[in-house]
């Protein structure tokens, strides 16, 4: 009957199944399960590593951006300062130059005035000398005509005074 288990078959099945569990357990399941577990761990490690790297990249990017921003600010400030400095330097220079120029002009004017005054005095002295000389000559040459001479002298002196 098909419903009554056959003892011989039971014994053979037991032997075959036990052998199968032992052989497969040792030579098939053990390495396969080990490989599965190891691969699982490896993938997990790789994934966490990737996530960490991503995080790091993000923080690095943020840092980089901050640095760029700071640099840009600094550059702007420097530029601004530079412009300011340039302007002050230029205006300072201009003021100084003006002062210098004014001084030079003043000096020149003073010197000119001084020179003129000196030249006038020289001229006056020379005129006086010349007139004395002339007067001497006239006196020595024209002692005869006294009246005419006097007139002449008078005229000369008047001329000078007029000058």
């Amino acid at each position: 009957m098909f419903l009554i288990p056959h003892v011989g078959t039971i014994i053979w099945t037991t032997i075959i199944f036990l052998l199968l569990v032992y052989i497969l357990g040792k030579f098939a399941w053990k390495p396969l399960l080990k490989a599965l577990a190891e691969r699982e761990q490896n993938i997990e490690r790789a994934l966490t590593g990737a996530a960490e790297a991503n995080e790091k990249i993000k923080s690095l990017q943020a840092e980089q951006e901050e640095i760029i921003k700071a640099t840009r600010l600094e550059k702007e400030q420097l530029l601004k300062e530079g412009v300011l400095q340039r302007n002050t330097i230029i205006s300072d220079a201009r003021i100084k130059a003006q002062e210098e120029a004014d001084k030079i002009i003043e000096n020149t004017r003073k010197q000119l005035a001084f020179e003129r005054a000196k030249a006038l005095e020289d001229l006056r002295n020379q005129v006086a000398e010349l007139s004395l000389e002339i007067a001497g000559k006239v006196v020595s040459a024209e002692m005869s005509d006294k009246i005419r001479h006097e007139k002449l002298v008078k005229e000369l002196v008047d001329d000078i005074e007029l000058n």
Partner: peptide
Amino acid sequence: LVIVLVKASSRA
């Protein structure tokens, strides 16, 4: 089973 499974696990 032994042949196929042992062969399958040889690489692992």
